[in-house]
């Protein structure tokens, strides 16, 4: 059974330092929790570049292509309409819907892509077992890491040594 070790820090510098130290000691699942994005957190956790921009680009292009092809097929091929002698497939008239569908697909991809990357909705998470963890969305700076049951006590001691204000161990029920 896994254990979540949750620790609160008083300031950003020791928090980031503790994350670097634990990672250097081979812990892979270190995470930080804060009310605002922290400068240097990506580097301290060794996070790779987010794939959200690539996702948005692909979805946006897909939306624009879908929009254009849809209009071309519907009014240019399947049901050609003669309006004022203009050709049935009339590219300038297709620009607005092509653009709007590109934006719509990209926005939907960003929004739902974020939820997928976050693993949300996930209303319950072991870190929420810690009552004081509520401050993570107000003014608290927290570190969490996942370790085996045997390593939990030693990790907690290590975090205290790194300057944590309080440390708690939560059993992962899942």
């Amino acid at each position: 059974m896994k254990r979540h070790v949750v620790a609160e820090f008083a300031a950003e510098a020791p928090l980031l330092e503790a994350a670097r130290a634990l990672r250097a000691e081979g812990q892979a699942e270190v995470d930080l929790h804060s009310p605002v994005p922290l400068h240097g957190a990506d580097e301290a956790l060794g996070l790779k570049r987010s794939i959200v921009p690539r996702l948005a680009l692909v979805a946006g292009l897909l939306g624009a292509v879908t929009g254009y092809l849809m209009q071309w097929y519907l009014v240019g091929v399947d049901w050609p309409i003669n309006v004022g002698g203009r050709p049935p497939s009339s590219p300038p008239a297709f620009i607005p819907v092509t653009f709007e569908l590109g934006v719509l697909f990209a926005a939907l991809a960003i929004f739902f892509g974020l939820f997928a990357l976050w693993g949300m909705p996930r209303l319950h998470h072991p870190v929420f077992e810690v009552e004081a963890f509520r401050s993570a969305s107000v003014d608290g700076l927290w570190l969490s890491t996942v370790v085996s049951a045997e390593a939990a006590e030693s990790t907690a001691a290590r975090l205290r040594g790194l300057g944590a204000r309080q440390v708690q161990i939560v059993e992962d029920a899942s």
Binding site: D31, L32, H33, P35, F115, M120, P121, R122, F133
Partner: peptide, 8 residues
């Protein structure tokens, strides 16, 4: 939706 302010 379970937001926990994670750096990730």
């Amino acid at each position: 939706f379970g937001w926990r302010g994670s750096a990730r």
